[in-house]
Design a protein around this nucleic acid. Structure first.
Lengths: 207, 207, 207, 207
DNA sequence: GATGAATGAGTCTTCATTCAT
DNA sequence: CATGAATGAAGACTCATTCAT
């Protein structure tokens, strides 16, 4: 029995991996069930043994990479915000690049299905929430300027996400004009000054 | 003949307007040629007299609203960057909201066709360029911190665009949590401090 | 324009006729849209220009023969019930035989779709109603025994319908054992005596 | 080995019972092998160990309830035809109602497979035959009018069967309009007068 | 110029049946 | 005996595009 189940699990895994590759390559809308099964070299019907339809398999593909994508969302910030920011931003860009095909799929699929939009929002929520939480703490301790942390978290998250997308997927600005490292540095620098600068400078002012 | 050409132009115009409305309502992928001609009350075949296909008509729809969408991109900044920023940001959000259906289409269509992606990049480029130019000036005059203005322009533009999309299309954060005005204020505040704050505070420091 | 519309109408007519033939030959469930278009020598998609799906085309086929099928339902009975009954029954059997393929389809389709069941019930209702009305009159005039005319109409209608089906479709009893004429005579005879006999004999009894 | 065979028989029995329940609930066409095995909680493949296909299992289900369905077919009529008729009709309606799901299946399956049609005809034949036999006897003893007993048996059987179907499955006439009892009474009354009335009254006529 | 009927390729989805374990 | 994964044929429906009128 274990053998059978193992084989089945292998098939499911195989289909999932195939789906992921096809999604990454072709995008959400252009991916067909036929393409997935062809890539997996299984019969068309086998797909429906493990997944309800394209939306379902996509959800499962995403679930399998979700933790990785927003993994950093769990870690708390250290006391040195600049350092923490730099690390988190760079890490986000790295993860984004590693999964850029799926990211694009997510953004594309969002338009095709309310369920995918929901899924994506659920996926990024912890990411935004962490930012908000850390901003709250920074404001509470006087490290950061007093700001609307919830809105700021959304805006700063948007900056990071969309910059990553523009950089890796749209190649904007031109590929020769910036490395991921430079992009991370710029984002970090803007973010840091946007939130901490005014107050951070203040201590240097004599009473 | 002049009459005939006029008639033709009117038909084309009519189809274009219909296409825009359908795109705005249904989104890119869900819009069909049939839906456009039905909305325009013309024959299905007439469409192909004026447009090559859906991609083509979308390009022409976008071209017809392009200047409006990034209209502000031309205006130079005043000497009071905070004030200018506030106005430009709010104006962008207003324009975004006025065209949010087409915006969504653009983001959606971008995934379906390289040509649309290209078109969109061309559309937003002046917008980003203006930011870069103005940052250059601010840095040159010492108003702003010395930064990589090109990258910063991309990042700040990304923040604004994506915040607008999240706010108007994804309703993130929840509708009751922020008005467009508050969002504009937050973006302006972050942007301002990100670029100007560090230097701006400095003069206040005693020697 | 007239030409075009004519052509289109011809196509629709042609598809309808093809559908009817295929339904008659294969039955409801075994009929596919593909079979209909193949029989009509049109493209598969043409079907959907004129019909929503199989259920729809079946409804239209049935509508086109409905009046004929229960046509007699409108005529009132003469004063000689036996004579009228004989004629109406024979006529029903003739019509049934002429459309027996579609009849079978109807009975079959009834199980596949609530809508077809409804359609059929609506189709036969006038037929049953006429029986009930005429029984009412016969009872009122003292020609017929006092009975529950509504229930009797259903039962007598059932006898006629189901006998016809058994005879023409199931070949019960064996084909050599009865002609439609004999069947009609038997039904007429049973019906007549069932309703009229008891009273009809009475007048012959001396006071 | 005996154990093994017992186990096998139990499995077969179990599948048969499941099949019956599923057929009763869903109807013939909508029943799938998958649904049967799922309901029986056996493996999909096990089904094919005991049955060739859906048609086969249905035949076996029907065989297992056949005697019950037309059980009354064996009993001879008493000398009081009215009383016998009333009892037999009511009994038939009761049995019909008790098995109405399978009845509908039978009528539905009849259209899908010649074999089921044949099976059904074989099933009802004794029922019709008994009517014919009893009519023969009634005619021979002078109780009934001289009629074509074979055809009359078919027609009267049809009336009963189809009235039952219309009543229990089609809810015709409306549910509030008749109870099974009333329907039985009407059928009995019509049947009785159809066959016996004319002659039955005669003796009462003075010479 | 305008029409709109006709086309047919492309996908999705279900399910009876097989067969290796 | 029983299992259940795998198969693939079959059918429904959509829609971009063409072309004769």
């Amino acid at each position: 029995m274990g053998k059978r189940q193992q084989r089945a699990a292998a098939t499911a895994e195989h289909l999932l991996a195939s789906a992921r590759e096809v999604f990454e390559t072709k995008g959400y809308q252009a991916t067909t069930v036929g393409a997935i099964t062809k890539h997996a070299a299984t019969a068309h019907g086998t797909f429906y043994l493990y997944f309800k339809n394209k939306e379902d398999v996509f959800a499962k593909v995403m679930a399998s990479v979700a933790q990785e994508m927003y993994r950093e969302a769990g870690a708390p910030w250290s006391n040195d915000p600049r350092e923490t920011l730099a690390r988190a931003t760079l890490r986000f860009l790295e993860v984004f690049e590693a999964h850029k095909g799926l990211w694009r799929c997510l953004l594309e699929g969002m338009h095709q299905s309310k369920a995918i939009e929901e899924m994506w929002l659920d996926l990024r929520r912890p990411f935004i929430d962490r930012i908000a939480r850390n901003l709250d703490r920074s404001v509470a301790t006087g490290q950061a300027r007093p700001i609307n942390t919830r809105l700021a978290a959304h805006a700063l998250g948007a900056m990071t996400e969309w910059s990553a997308f523009a950089h890796f997927e749209l190649q904007e600005p031109g590929p020769s004009e910036a490395t991921p490292r430079e992009l991370a540095d710029t984002i970090t620098d803007l973010w840091y000054h946007a939130v901490y600068a005014g107050v951070y400078d203040a201590p240097r002012q004599p009473a």
